[in-house]
Design a binder for these strands. Structure first.
Lengths: 213, 213, 213, 213
DNA sequence: CGATAACCGAGACGGTACGTCGAGTCTTGGC
DNA sequence: GCCAAGACTCGACGTACCGTCTCGGTTATCG
């Protein structure tokens, strides 16, 4: 997803020639890099200051405030940038793709560079409703829709039951892995078979099966 | 959970009578009430200042700092006070108790006065690492242990499969409801049958069953 | 006083035709007018910003900086432009011309459009040392020289005593009216006879004369 | 003149016990000293920043802003503090006292530590009308009144003519020395006989006297 | 019962970061 | 090469809180 102007989700190409010096692409890049470096370097969110970012990026504070109204808005964009796209459909079976999607989320939760983003996304976001909404629109909703599309396909292919609510199915499948990603430590995500185990268990059911006849 | 002395988990009973004026119980109560009121009134964690709390409580700042070393410590206590205990075991079937536990979490997510705690716990708390850790130790972990005890009992009773990892079972059962509590809107929790539907679906499995022979 | 090129006292006539678009006379005029309007409108020197001038003049900041290196230099030119020349010698008696000179200063102190210059000259300019120095060289000094020339002529004509220091005489004559112009309110300058009264009193002496024999 | 609270000219002793920690006398002193040191050390008024003062005084910015609303207000107080009282009446002849008063102003204009104050007083003051008024009330007016009292006494003693306007006499006597103090360089004030010369010239008159019969 | 000690509210203290504004410079597209 | 517009870095502005520290005053226990 390309987003020319970082602040607005729906960037209008702005055919009418804008006047004045254009915003520096380099400065923007430097700001993003500075935030990522600081966070990757152990700075906590509450220690992360605009002044610190500006200094680290070699940029004036005004250059930051020209682009984002406050720290949170900047973080939303940093987060959006870091969120890598979900894997394309492999064309495999719906069951395999469910495993792939959950495994992608597991790996996303492990990625060192983006892990703090995930935590922050479910964190600071709530402080600023409109920004939380923006993040929701740009990151959460598309993913959930993709996930629900996949769930629907699984139903169509007979991999999932058709008698259950679509939302319920989605939450039952995604809730556990997201819960682990956000709340628990990395160690809980390290098992490479985790996604498959989850799908297997969910599809087969958690109750013991009577012995097959 | 004992919380006699608010400052620390391990309160010294202080049998040796201390001299001087004792700390005012009323001031303490006013502080707690002020924080709860502010948070319930829409204040976010990052907007919540010690000065604001002191003013709202009609209390001097020093009176707060005399009891807690910093904002995080105060919040840990506020949160601990609000978290109501999980329901006692009803002695019913393990399946019913699983439903009861999940339903308790659903209702907890709906409770107006404490909802901010839940959201903050998974959200804003990440920016206050000590608060997050303390909350985890004092609230999350005991509950998870209680939940896992229940899961183990369900396994023993033959309600849940014995061939699955205990942690995995816990996450598959609790992840979806917590995910909904934290991330989505209240409307997603309003269905009183939600807990039962989840347990039914999880136990029976999400895959279609072949027609019974 | 020549002020052909506004940027510096010593303007190069630039006979060699310079290439490119010539500087806009209109822009320059707009800048001068904007400064005068702003100052006449109550803006103080410290409130007077280059950005404000540029906006008021409908001009880019660079257009200002292309002509003057800084705010002080611009103000020197604005002030120089406003200072109207002293009246030519009327060829009358030295005493009449002294009265005329002092009366000119009185009227100058009353002129609405330029009064701020006078106040600023003795006041706010001290905070902008270069402006103050330049104003001194280009406005104050020539006038003082003209005044001292007149004083010398008065001595030669026997109107003023020859046994006094020239500078002292100048200050005794000019000090009072300038003092009033700068420090006191306009009302103190409204008496049209003020200049004559001053000269009469100064020449006759402030001490009572013994009754003429 | 003692002024307990520096901000207000007419300090009410505040019999009603004020609560909270009282303002630090030491901090106030440090601020005054810092300003005086900076100015004496060559800092110009426009280079004088609140942050610089705070740093030099080892004081937080808020401690300054708690006392004065802005830089100018602070300067008014600094200036008022530095203005030394006029010399007491010596009981000598009115003519000698006139000389003494003018000589006091000459020396004041020479005093290194306070010279900048004089310049600033007639400078920045105009920018902020109400502060200019305050300075006028607390410094200028009392002095002018003292001067006019002296002039009146001189009239009564027959040292000055009775047929001239009191204000006019005051300006003719004080204008020249103030004019020199404010506008010209130090060199013009160095002659220790200057005050006497001025009074002599003014009283005797600037016009040549016919030879006494 | 008076001394002593720890509490209380209020609010000033030295700091740090905030978000804004202006200075003086640079970079667009257009004339 | 000038023009308007507006971005750039830099640094000061005045505000808000932090966590600490006096103030005058209150309420306990101890001697």
């Amino acid at each position: 997803m390309k987003t020319d102007t970082p602040a607005a989700g729906a960037g209008q190409p702005c055919a009418t020639a804008r006047r004045g010096r254009p915003r520096s692409e380099a400065a923007e890049q430097a700001i993003f890099t500075a935030v990522e470096d600081l966070m990757a370097g152990g700075t906590t969110l509450s220690e992360l200051t605009i002044e610190g970012i500006a200094t680290a990026a070699g940029v004036g504070k005004a250059t930051i405030y020209r682009r984002w109204p406050n720290k949170e808005a900047l973080l939303v964009d940093v987060v959006s940038r870091l969120e890598v796209p979900m894997p394309e459909s492999t064309g495999g079976s719906a069951r395999d793709e469910l495993v792939a999607m959950i495994d992608y989320m597991r790996r996303r939760g492990l990625a060192k560079r983006t892990r703090w983003v995930l935590k922050a996304a479910f964190g600071q976001m709530h402080s600023l409703p409109e920004l939380h909404a923006a993040y929701h629109d740009r990151v959460v909703k598309p993913r959930r829709e993709a996930a629900l599309d996949l769930v629907q396909r699984a139903i169509d292919e007979g991999v999932l039951r058709a008698d259950l609510d679509l939302d319920l199915l989605g939450d039952l499948l995604l809730g556990p892995i997201l819960y682990r990603s956000i709340l628990w430590e990395d160690s809980d995500l390290e098992d490479p078979e985790l996604a498959r185990k989850m799908v297997d268990a969910l599809l087969d059911g958690l109750a013991p099966r009577p012995a097959a006849p």
